[in-house]
Design a protein around this nucleic acid. Structure first.
Lengths: 207, 207
DNA sequence: TGTACATCAGTGAACGCGCGTTCACTGATGTAC
DNA sequence: TGTACATCAGTGAACGCGCGTTCACTGATGTAC
């Protein structure tokens, strides 16, 4: 008997335990090719090489799959921001986080679009918020360190964190899925993110 | 013969010249009730009290109606920002623009959602960009005035404008259609926008 | 002022499509004895 | 080590729906003479 884990990537069919993952990446691919309106559960199943009813053994509904994709992406972004090393001033770290945020959005356009989409789609966005707030926590910790080091303005933490998040998120949104998309040469967005991050970090500094 | 203009609001049927407008507001209402996925051309026609084929005399397609709604909303926002009076320091005006931006998004949630949606939806967002960039121009002028007055950091204008736009847009997006929506008590968003705007304006200031 | 006519903005029937979801089924898997 | 059996993860047919869009039509409108 050959164990599941020893089977080749493509020859797995029954009970491979991988279909869930494959459906998620299939959905992501379709989104990147045909846009957010263009993807369907059936399409994802087809691309995963499986009947259109199969997804229902892994996801309760179309929306559930998209939610999972969104939550996973927020978590990925949070991980990435948290992994930014503590070298130099804590404010410089926040600055690097801003650039990392934008780079994440640029490198994972579909993921970022899905993340934005979930807030937009239904009125009950209850499922998304908790995961996305992990990003807030990561930023909060970084800004708090800057305050402790005396390089950020003292006082209420929340406004500083919100300004940081807003600036990163806004720039990413404008550039990846907003009016600034395809507006400038592709290589320009990241250096621009750099100077935007500088301006932000200047704004966080003491008076 | 009774002229079109003299007819009552509801009794207009043929050639009233108003259906275009009615379809737009109907679409907006449906979006606010059922979300962006929930609206349809047929639904808008129904709500406007007209057959489902009638819209095609005013809009080439479903997407065209949505584009018009988006462009109109961007223009509305730009107008509103431009109308903010020049009292006090030019930086304070930018600050008031940030608050106005967020307030616009909060007061016109559906419009703002449509604006965000157009960037997300199709890959060819060619139609949206030009109108949306009017907002950029308005901010650009305001920040330039601050530079001229010596209250904003001298040098490249673009990074300062982009940081401003990103911060306003990001905060609005987070609060109206993002993870922060329905996260805090409704009345909290606007004062928060105030302090975020302060932090932003501090960031624009000279070193 | 009256009449003929082009144009305009509606109507309603119809087409065709892809979709989400359900259901009874079947074959593979892993486990208890 | 074999065997019986519960469970699991697929299949394919089917349901029903609402949608965007097209088309031939018709009645209202405004205009040229």
């Amino acid at each position: 008997v050959v164990s599941c884990l020893e089977m080749g990537e493509t020859e797995r069919r029954y009970h491979h335990g991988d279909l869930r993952r494959q459906l998620l990446t299939a959905a992501l691919q379709i989104v990147s090719e045909r846009g957010l309106e263009g993807w369907s559960l059936r399409g994802a199943a087809l691309r995963a090489g499986v009947s259109h009813a199969a997804p229902y053994h892994h996801f309760g509904s179309k929306a559930a799959l998209l939610d999972e994709l969104s939550n996973e992406s927020w978590a990925l972004l949070a991980e990435r921001l948290a992994a930014i090393p503590r070298s130099g001033s804590p404010l410089e770290r926040v600055q690097r986080m801003a650039v990392g945020y934008v780079r994440f959005a640029l490198e994972n356009r579909e993921r970022f679009r899905v993340m934005l989409h979930r807030g937009l789609a239904g009125t009950p966005e209850s499922a998304q918020a908790p995961t996305a707030l992990v990003v807030f926590r990561v930023l909060e910790a970084a800004v708090a360190e800057a305050q402790d080091a005396g390089v950020a303005r003292p006082g209420d933490l929340a406004p500083l964190v919100l300004t940081s998040w807003a600036t990163m998120h806004g720039f990413a949104a404008l550039v990846v899925a907003g009016p600034l998309a395809d507006q400038a040469p592709p290589g320009l967005a990241e250096p621009l993110a750099g100077v935007v991050a500088e301006t932000l970090s200047h704004g966080l500094g003491p008076t």
